[in-house]
Design a protein around this nucleic acid. Structure first.
Lengths: 255, 255
DNA sequence: GCTTGACCTTCCCTCTGGGGGAAGGTACAG
DNA sequence: CTGTACCTTCCCCCAGAGGGAAGGTCAAGC
């Protein structure tokens, strides 16, 4: 029989941890002297302790180990932990790929992967996503009192422009209502003349390819600076540079 | 110009985060109205914010991003992060291998990897690591008043037995003094008759091989139940089972 | 002009998953 | 008999972020 201190030394952990494991029901002393509450451990408990430490080393949280000791399914817990670890590894690899792309790129990373929420929008088909059509669509939405405070955009491949709304709007033969689905997008921001967007688009496509992601929907273009919000008060001496302040986000939904 | 709320929506983060980034010096508004402390952001800042978010997504801590913004070496930071991530991935893979070994083994894991501190010991060469020699060696150490409260052991391949000491001891022609180096060991605990140790040894060697680790020193055997500490008070009715309570640890130093 | 929402700061809590240390008191061992 | 070990309880720590509420001011739209 060992007292807690020497047993802790043998086990390679602290007496404090042994007390905590006792309290958590993970690993209890074989006998507690009722007269003084001293914990006594037997040599035969070392293999049991060892198994618990091994589980901890595999990354199982203590409370889960507690469940196992209480009769849980070891095999299943290990399989679950394996799946978790596998996800961790994949995440690390994904990040490594993204990192390598950034390292190759002098300016640093400019593409991020982010979730986009469901977006209820008014949509309009147009030959070209031009400003005038966007103003028309926005007026319609605003007249209906449904303008949501988010920037409008386009889905160029569908020849469609959209304006976020706060709910269903009256539709016309030219203007419809739908909800753009929530997706995870790879996104890049382009600043400057609209002609330069083509470069950004290429960079985004290259990034998604390098990251090994699959495209699941057509690209969305968001006109970030569009709307009254962009023209609040301006500091004294600030010159609004229309060209430089023209900011566009390209979003490519990926799996 | 945007106020913090709309800019946060565009950037895909919270106003709170933007305020925190301002305070951390990571990303500051282009203008702060001195009359009311309102923060104003320009559309042209979106690409800059985007780069910061991308760095965050790559796992760089905020304070490091702060250093980069303050003129730090981006390339070097990314390389460092890459190395870190690579270690993470390797750790995940190492654990996956250990997990797979455990899953294959019905009883659960019984080998752990753990560091062992430097151990000053009295050593003695013997033909066989037998009890009588161990008692003799321990008596010598105890007579010198140098017995350290840790269990004795053997290095069978060297035909050497050792007893931990608290400092240098007088040496004789049969008894020496040395310091076992600190190492990381793969360790298994065997309980029961000494003959069964061979099975444990095989299990340990198999584990180390499966884990892809290299052995860097001969195996150490530790007699865990050896010594007075093991025979403190015993609960009423407790029967000391010499065979079952004979507990041996095998330690294999690995890289 | 008034209301509602947005913004300001400051302080504290949350999470995850565990750790350690000190205080104050009793018990054991040599 | 003295130093060490042990008991409990309470509090603090880590990293690395983020959120929430309080209390006050301000802006925008009707």
């Amino acid at each position: 029989m060992f007292r807690i201190g020497s047993f802790a030394r043998l086990g390679g952990l602290s007496a404090k941890q042994l007390r905590a494991y006792d309290e958590l029901g993970i690993f209890r002393p074989v006998w507690v002297d009722p007269s003084n509450d001293y914990r006594y451990y037997s040599p035969a408990q070392l293999p049991e302790l060892r198994r618990i430490l091994a589980l901890r080393e595999l990354g199982l949280p203590l409370d889960e180990i507690g469940c196992l000791v209480a009769g849980g399914d070891l095999r299943e817990a290990l399989e679950r932990r394996r799946a978790e670890l596998e996800r961790e590894r994949q995440r690390a690899e994904e990040r490594l790929r993204a990192l390598d792309i950034s390292i190759a790129d002098e300016r640093g990373p400019d593409v991020v992967l982010r979730p986009v929420a469901v977006e209820p929008v008014a949509v309009m088909h147009v030959a070209q996503p031009v400003d005038t059509a966007l103003y028309e669509l926005e007026s319609h939405v605003r007249d209906a009192g449904r303008r949501a405070p988010r920037p409008p955009g386009a889905i160029p491949s569908e020849r469609e422009i959209f304006v976020p709304v706060t709910g269903p709007i009256p539709t016309t033969d030219r203007i419809g209502y739908r909800r753009l689905p929530a997706v995870r997008v790879a996104s890049i921001i382009h600043r400057g003349a609209y002609e330069g967007v083509a470069d950004a688009r290429r960079a985004l496509l290259r990034w998604v390819e390098s990251a090994g992601l699959a495209t699941v929907a057509p690209m969305r273009t968001i006109y970030l600076q569009f709307g009254a919000e962009a023209e609040l008060r301006v500091p004294p001496g600030y010159v609004v540079d229309q060209a430089a302040d023209f900011v566009t986000e390209l979003q490519l939904p990926v799996a």
